[in-house]
Amino acid sequence: MIGAALTGFATAFSLILAIGAQNAFVLRQGLTRSHVFALCLLCAASDAVLIVAGVLGFGAITEKYPQLPQMMAWGGAAFLIVYGTMRLWAAYKGAYAMQIAGKSAGLWATLGTAAALTWLNPHVYLDTLGLIGAISVQFTTASLKMAFAIGAVTSSFVFFFGLGYGARLLAPVMQSARAWQVLDVLIALVMWVLAFKLIS
């Protein structure tokens, strides 16, 4: 049981660790200290739903509907391009008084953006429904599969809450408009690179 749980934890953590659109957004919100709990909960809960679905074997959906990943890729890429452009525009304007004061968009706007970055990203489905689902096949009993899933879900909660609340350690560095401009330019580049990878 413990071995299965640790395998699930390590597998999910290694997949989430790569800097992506979702992680960059959580980091940015963590720096403003705005809606951090709700945001981290949304991201981790979304991962939990997908991880459980993957372990239960719903990865077969993409085999039944082979055109689905491509449709999701184009939708996700379009969103990433738009969001990256918004971050670059924000960097160009350089108006960061709200961010420096620790304020951001409203709760529902924040959660809406996070939901889009999560559910419109085909890689999330490949990682959870595909890879995690495939790795879970080695555990043949229901109890071992459950332990694996619990470990994977736990790693998601640890990662997102660690990133969201750990970001405040960088807060002293982010007390100037220039620092926020650099961060937004980097986030824009990450979004565009991810969008290019999705459609290439």
Rank of each mutant, 00 (worst) to 15 (best):
M1P: 05
M1H: 11
A5F: 07
G8L: 08
A10M: 12
T11G: 08
T11N: 09
A12Y: 02
A12D: 04
L15T: 13
I16D: 04
N23E: 01
F25T: 11
G30F: 06
V36K: 15
V36S: 07
L41I: 14
D47H: 09
L50C: 11
L50K: 14
I51L: 02
I51A: 06
L56Q: 09
G57F: 09
T62A: 07
Q70G: 10
W74C: 12
G76H: 03
G76V: 11
A78G: 04
A78E: 03
F79I: 11
I81C: 10
Y83R: 09
G84H: 01
L88Q: 03
L88E: 05
A91T: 08
A97R: 15
M98K: 15
Q99L: 04
K103G: 05
S104D: 07
G106Y: 02
T110P: 02
T110I: 13
L111P: 00
G112H: 10
G112S: 09
A114S: 11
A115T: 13
L131D: 01
G133F: 05
I135D: 05
S136H: 03
A142K: 11
A142N: 11
L144Y: 00
K145M: 00
A149M: 09
A149S: 13
A152E: 00
V153D: 03
S156F: 05
F157M: 10
F159C: 11
F160V: 09
F160N: 06
F160S: 07
G164P: 00
R168P: 00
L170V: 09
M174W: 08
S176F: 09
S176Q: 08
R178Q: 09
R178E: 06
A179G: 05
Q181V: 10
D184T: 14
V185H: 02
W192D: 03
F196W: 14
F196Y: 13
K197L: 07
